[in-house]
Design a protein around this nucleic acid. Structure first.
Lengths: 196, 196
DNA sequence: TCCCTCATGTAAAAGGTTACATGATTTA
DNA sequence: TAAATCATGTAACCTTTTACATGAGGGA
């Protein structure tokens, strides 16, 4: 039951699956793909256009996507990409194949590990600033969730792309909520040490 | 109040700060550093020996660490590294300097975004397996926390390296707890779709 | 017309993983 | 003594970021 893709043995990078993941939901122009990956796909993968353009070429050579030229009136023509059957098949196979755990890397947490060397007020300030950034993102995610719920994405079947987006959003919300709470807890400890 | 490091303008990589973060707690042999970074430092940064050895050379050239040769009886000699005053100063400055948010990247979450294409039983299996991995790690972290609490790390002042390690561990626990709960929630949805 | 932005790239550098190498020591 | 392991690297490769480039359109 092999897909008839002529991939010549080229393996697909994670970015390739990110792009296929968007294109599996419908055709997109290159600028739309660039915009989609500027804010992380599924809330957990992003990329810049400098990486996206060459990857699209590779995916097309592997027979996983195709493109056509669009000529919107009065504007420059852009490329509109679409996943091929082989592309969808490759994506589906990849999606349910086992993965090793993601490495948990965070420059910020690495700083915290050495924050005992800093002046407590400076440390508290750093933590409050980080709390603010994550609280902002949490608010954004919660607004998206409200919108998704209103449109019924939460109740769609697990075979629906909108439910998948909702599921990843739920993880993003849980992640940010926990992060904000933790920042607050630690900031309070440093503030108590500084001001107490 | 400049540190007199002769770094020749060479900037320190994140890995460099990870190594300094360990060495700020006391001298370590190269194999000890390799072991320390095999399991992530502060639970959120890891590296392999192939990256560590060259980085130690760079840090030493920048005057941030020094080494001496140890000749344990009957064993090969190994290098014992220590942070210099300049190294500690650079680490302290870096630790409280503001950072942009870490990119939240997860191959697994990217899969979930495309999991609507998979067979629900296969998707459920993938999620249960992931839940198991994170539950295992959570259990490990909770055991470490119990040990830390018993030894009083949680009550030490914020200027203590042991409290810093405890703080990062708290974040690791919150992260894993939330992750496990989310995996369970989504696995149930796929199982209901498969078995119901 | 001049400038700015957009769509589309290329190139170099930085960060990280995988594969390979080697002499010393320890274990079977 | 042969085989496995350890400490210490080097080299190639892959991924991602940063810097640079360029022609087409639209706006001032």
């Amino acid at each position: 039951m092999e897909a008839p893709a002529n991939d010549g043995g080229a393996s697909i990078s994670t970015l390739g699956y990110a792009l296929l993941g968007v294109l599996a939901r419908g055709p997109r122009s290159a600028p739309e793909l660039v915009a989609a990956l500027a804010n992380p796909v599924g809330f957990f993968w992003n990329a810049l256009h400098t990486q996206i353009y060459p990857e699209l070429v590779r995916l097309e050579r592997a027979g996983l996507v195709t493109h056509e030229l669009l000529a919107p009136r009065g504007r420059r023509s852009t490329k509109r990409y679409a996943a091929t059957e082989a592309g969808r098949a490759a994506l589906a196979a990849w999606a349910s194949a086992p993965v090793p755990m993601d490495p948990d890397r965070s420059r910020f947490m690495l700083k915290v590990y050495s924050l005992w060397l800093a002046e407590p007020p400076a440390a508290a300030h750093l933590l409050r600033e980080h709390e603010r950034l994550h609280a902002e993102r949490l608010a954004t995610y919660e607004a998206i969730e409200a919108e998704m719920r209103r449109s019924g994405a939460a109740e769609e079947p697990v075979t629906s792309p909108r439910f998948a987006a909702y599921a990843t959003l739920r993880r993003g919300i849980g992640y940010e909520r926990e992060y904000v709470a933790w920042c607050r807890w630690l900031a309070e400890r440093f503030e108590a040490a500084a001001g107490g």
